[in-house]
């Protein structure tokens, strides 16, 4: 495993830790999109089916379990925890996220590496992950007040896929890996969706101002 891949996984983990910290310590999920969180549950549930069939490494298995358990628990907190759920911005989080699922699934049926259940679901998870952040970005834009934890959560989440791009370049060059257009292009789209957010995040960080996205 190369340094970009490890750094990518660690920022992904860090983003989830930041979100859980917000939920646990502030007992709040203000500014967090439940729609995006639900999409991540679907992403991990369809991608990590191989946890039962293929063993890669201890690291791989543990990380998969961590991502599955944390994504389920975040959704549980936002839906059912009696304090946390009252802080959910239900009226602002109106992105029709179901409309993302069907096109991603159809695309996975059409464009995949191999037409097997496991491979189609894996591909579906890549397509869905690429666009899963959209409800969250829309919610951020509507939020007048973005707290630091929420801003950092989205930043780390974007950094994760950005670092994966370097991981793929490294693997292609150094490990002579094959062309892998499906993850590369979905990863590129996923990272590009953060471009606008990154711009304002870094600008506010430089000026030491509170993050606010233009409406």
């Amino acid at each position: 495993m190369n340094v970009f891949r490890l750094a990518g996984d660690m920022t992904h983990l860090l983003s989830i830790m930041v979100l859980l910290l917000k939920i646990h310590s502030m007992k709040s999920c203000a500014g967090i999109s439940l729609k995006t969180q639900e999409l991540y549950v679907l992403v991990f549930a369809t991608r990590y089916l191989d946890i039962f069939t293929t063993y890669f490494s201890f690291y791989n298995t543990v990380m998969k379990i961590v991502f599955l358990v944390t994504s389920f628990s975040i959704v549980w907190y936002m839906r059912h925890h009696k304090v946390v759920r009252q802080t959910y911005d239900r009226d602002q989080d109106t992105f029709r996220h179901h409309l993302l699922v069907i096109p991603c699934f159809l695309l996975a049926l059409l464009i995949n590496h191999r037409f097997t259940v496991r491979e189609v679901l894996w591909t579906f998870s890549l397509y869905l992950e690429a666009v899963a952040i959209l409800p969250q970005l829309v919610l951020l834009q509507r939020s007048r007040n973005i707290d630091n934890l929420t801003g950092n959560y989205v930043f780390f989440l974007g950094a994760y896929r950005g670092l994966y791009l370097f991981n793929w370049i490294y693997r292609y060059m150094a490990e002579k890996s094959q062309l892998r257009w499906i993850p590369w292009i979905s990863g590129l789209v996923q990272t590009a969706l953060y471009a606008d957010f990154f711009y304002y995040y870094i600008k506010s960080w430089k000026k030491r101002e509170k993050l606010q996205l233009p409406a």
């Binding site: 996984d9 490494s57 590496h113 191999r114 094959q178």
Partner: peptide, 10 residues
């Protein structure tokens, strides 16, 4: 094996 190579990522 490309499938192994892809699926070892998270």
């Amino acid at each position: 094996n490309q499938e192994i190579q892809t699926h070892d990522e998270l």
